[in-house]
Amino acid sequence: MRQKLTRVLGGVAMLALVAGGAACSSGGDDAASGGDKCGNKIAFFGALTGSSAALGINENNGVKLAVDKYNKENADCKVELVELDSQGSPDQAPQLAQKAIDDPKILGIVGPAYSGESEAAGPLFHEAGLVAITASATRPSLAEQGWKTFFRVVGNDLSQGPAAGTYIKNVMKADRVFVIDDQSAYGAGLADEVKKILGPAVVGTDKVQGEGKQTEFSAVVTKVKAANVKAIFYGGYYQEAGLIRKQLTAAGVTAPLVAGDGVNDPAYITSAGAAAAEGTILTCPCQPATEARGTFVEEFKALNGTDPGTYSDTAYDAANILLAGIKAGKTTREGLLEFVKGYSGEGVAASYKFVEGGELDPAQVKIWAYKVQGGKVVPDQEIPKA
């Protein structure tokens, strides 16, 4: 449990760091280079409709809170939030990225939320010099493309995957595991890291189709049942995970399902049914959002009418990094990019400093395990680093 003083201070630390910076109407480092001080925008890029929307809505609501607070504190020079609904599809990502690029008032992006759409949009943002901070895309290769504009405020699958495998091995003590993935950039990558940790304990593997393209999983259910496993790992997102868990349970398979952060959402329980979902283990390179510092939880609920969900707090922090730069007078894309690159500060979810490739400093990465219990996703334990 964090000390009380830290929790109180954390909620205001983002903007306090730039309190002495140039006010929006008083010039700044970008004034000479043509940056307009007011009327600027940031965008959220992620699924807001479709089968993958729950996670995107969590994040967008966090960004909305950050912008809402900023605008109340800077009423004479507000920032507009633009919502770019990708529906979680890499196919839609390039045109959305271009839409953001074509609006010169958009100085930064929170997102893209998913790894696949990040792969599709990343080259365009890089070429345009438009900084993008993802709150949830964890594919390791995203940081290996040489994109100067890519940053993330969570750990990647090279931290989450081994942690999930370690949990299965050391906490669950499962020596027979079946691994499934949805063939997405995120899901396959996460599954590969889990397989490396578990080694010979993986007695079977299979692939399914994600993005709502498959709803019937009898073939994989038959394979899992025949393998007589003690645990099942799924790399992918909640919509398919819920259906797989439901069909496994209907077939009499009681081995618990373990999955990554793409499944860490109440929508998984809705999809699977509370009884079937009970006991599922979900990992995430994020702390419980309800443990966020300061007054974040209360303010989030007051604005959005619901409790924060997975990545609501990290999206809020990502937005606040961009807003801190704008507050400091970095009102060109070039200026804001340089601000983010050199940023170091406290948020409500973590401490932030970026290293090579835009990765979050590994010292700040934490991996948590969550459990479905009584029809809810509840914190289980922080998984020790290997």
Rank of each mutant, 00 (worst) to 15 (best):
K41Q: 15
I42S: 03
A43P: 15
A43T: 15
F45M: 11
G46M: 02
G46N: 05
G46S: 08
G46A: 08
A47P: 13
A47D: 03
A47H: 08
A47G: 05
L48R: 08
L48G: 09
L48I: 11
T49D: 04
T49C: 12
G50M: 13
G50K: 11
G50L: 08
S52T: 08
S52E: 15
A53V: 10
A53P: 04
A53G: 05
A54I: 04
A54W: 03
L55H: 06
G56R: 05
I57Q: 14
I57D: 11
I57K: 10
N58L: 00
E59K: 06
E59S: 06
E59N: 03
E59W: 06
E59Y: 03
N60W: 06
N60C: 05
N60S: 07
N60R: 02
N60L: 00
N61P: 01
N61L: 04
V63A: 03
V63T: 13
V63Q: 07
V63R: 07
V63K: 10
K64P: 02
K64R: 13
L65G: 00
L65T: 01
A66C: 09
D68C: 11
K69C: 10
K69V: 02
Y70V: 14
Y70Q: 14
Y70N: 15
N71V: 15
N71D: 07
K72S: 12
K72P: 13
K72L: 05
E73S: 13
E73C: 05
E73R: 12
N74K: 15
N74F: 00
A75R: 04
A75W: 02
D76W: 00
D76C: 07
D76A: 05
D76P: 00
D76I: 01
D76N: 07
C77V: 13
C77S: 01
K78W: 05
K78R: 04
V79K: 06
V79M: 01
V79Q: 11
V79L: 00
E80A: 09
L81T: 00
L81H: 06
V82L: 01
V82C: 06
E83H: 10
D85I: 00
D85F: 01
D85Q: 06
D85K: 05
S86N: 08
Q87C: 04
Q87S: 07
Q87T: 13
G88V: 08
G88P: 15
G88E: 13
G88N: 14
S89F: 04
P90H: 15
D91I: 09
Q92S: 08
A93E: 09
A93M: 03
P94V: 15
Q95I: 14
Q95C: 03
Q95G: 01
L96K: 12
L96Y: 13
A97F: 07
A97E: 08
